[in-house]
Simulated assay, not measured.
Amino acid sequence: MQFLTLLGKKLKSEEVIELLELHDVSVVYDFDRFQEGMKDVYWASSRDQGFELRFNEEQILDVVFLYIVESSGFSSVDKSQLDAPLFSSYREAKQSFEAEGVEYVSSPSNDPNHEMFQRWIKGIFQGYSIHYEFADHTLAKVTMTLIA
Rank of each mutant, 00 (worst) to 15 (best):
L53D: 02
G8T: 09
H137R: 13
E100Y: 01
K79M: 11
S71F: 07
E57R: 10
Q118Y: 05
V16H: 01
D30V: 14
R119W: 05
S80L: 15
Q59I: 03
V25D: 00
F31I: 11
F97G: 00
E115V: 13
I147P: 01
A44I: 03
D62F: 09
E21M: 07
L86D: 03
W120A: 14
L66G: 00
A84G: 06
V105C: 11
K141N: 08
S71A: 12
I124Q: 10
S76Q: 04
E70M: 05
Q35M: 10
L61C: 07
L11W: 02
D32T: 06
R54Y: 05
K122A: 14
E100Q: 11
L82M: 04
Q126E: 15
M144N: 01
A44P: 01
A140D: 12
V64E: 03
V16E: 04
Q118E: 15
D40A: 15
Y128N: 08
T5K: 15
S107C: 08
A140M: 10
Q49N: 11
E15I: 12
I60A: 11
L86T: 04
R33M: 14
A84W: 04
F117N: 05
F31K: 12
G123T: 03
Q81W: 01
F65R: 06
N113I: 06
E18F: 11
L20W: 01
L7F: 09
S13F: 04
E70K: 06
E92D: 12
A93R: 00
E100N: 08
E98G: 01
S89N: 04
S72Q: 12
F97H: 02
S107G: 13
E133N: 14
D83I: 09
S72V: 04
G101N: 03
S26K: 13
M38V: 12
Q2D: 15
Q49A: 14
F31R: 13
K9S: 15
I68W: 00
P85Q: 10
E57N: 12
D32H: 01
Y104E: 08
A135W: 06
R91P: 02
E92C: 02
Y67C: 02
I60N: 05
V142H: 01
G127W: 04
L66M: 02
V41L: 12
D40R: 08
I68K: 00
D24V: 03
L4W: 05
F74N: 04
L61K: 00
E98K: 06
E92H: 05
R33F: 15
Y132T: 07
T145E: 14
M144W: 02
L4G: 13
L146G: 07
I124C: 07
H131Y: 13
Q126P: 07
S76I: 01
M38A: 15
F31M: 14
V69H: 06
T5L: 13
Q59H: 07
M1S: 09
Y42D: 10
R54A: 09
V102Y: 00
